[in-house]
């Protein structure tokens, strides 16, 4: 009975992790790709950790609670990395499928600054290679 439960948890975990990775391949711009691997995996890894905890606790050497810590650290670090990736992408002005936010009409300064950050920059006005002279 326990084996069925564990198998189910491990398979579900693997499935969700796979879907997360699939999102990386299927989605179409940087920001949406960010959603797949950083978060569809939280449930996947969660299932795997529960399976691990249940299995090692059933081995008769007392409770295995390391997994709680893994979950804690994962829940602290995964959002931070996602946030930093998104922020870096905004600073690098990577193009997005999403329209820039309208913002609060009463605070055009904010909306303006966000729009400025999200819209891609104009190409730099460098001379083309054939125009360049030594």
């Amino acid at each position: 009975m326990l084996e069925y439960l564990l198998s189910f948890l491990i398979l579900a975990g693997a499935l969700f992790t796979f879907i997360g990775a699939l999102g990386l391949a299927r989605l179409r711009d940087f920001y949406t790709r960010l959603h797949g691997p950083t978060k569809a995996t939280t449930l996947g890894v969660g299932c795997l950790l529960i399976a691990s905890s249940v299995y090692f606790s059933s081995q008769g050497r007392g409770m295995s609670l390391h997994e709680v810590l893994v979950t804690l650290f994962l829940f602290i670090t995964a959002p931070i990395s996602a946030h930093l990736l998104a922020k870096t992408a905004l600073h690098l002005r990577i193009e997005s499928l999403a329209p820039p936010p309208q913002g609060d009409q009463s605070d055009t300064r904010e909306a303006g600054s966000y729009t400025e950050i999200i819209t891609p920059p104009r190409p730099p006005e460098r001379p083309l290679p054939e125009e360049r002279t030594r």
Binding site: Y31, L34, H35, T38, A86, E110
Partner: peptide
């Protein structure tokens, strides 16, 4: 911000310098 990132479908991308808005 952490919670928004954890619940899938949303990523908090930027906090405005005056901390009034979260993108």
């Amino acid at each position: 911000a952490n919670t928004i990132c954890l619940t899938p479908g949303t990523v908090s991308a930027r906090l405005s310098p005056d901390r009034d808005f979260l993108l």
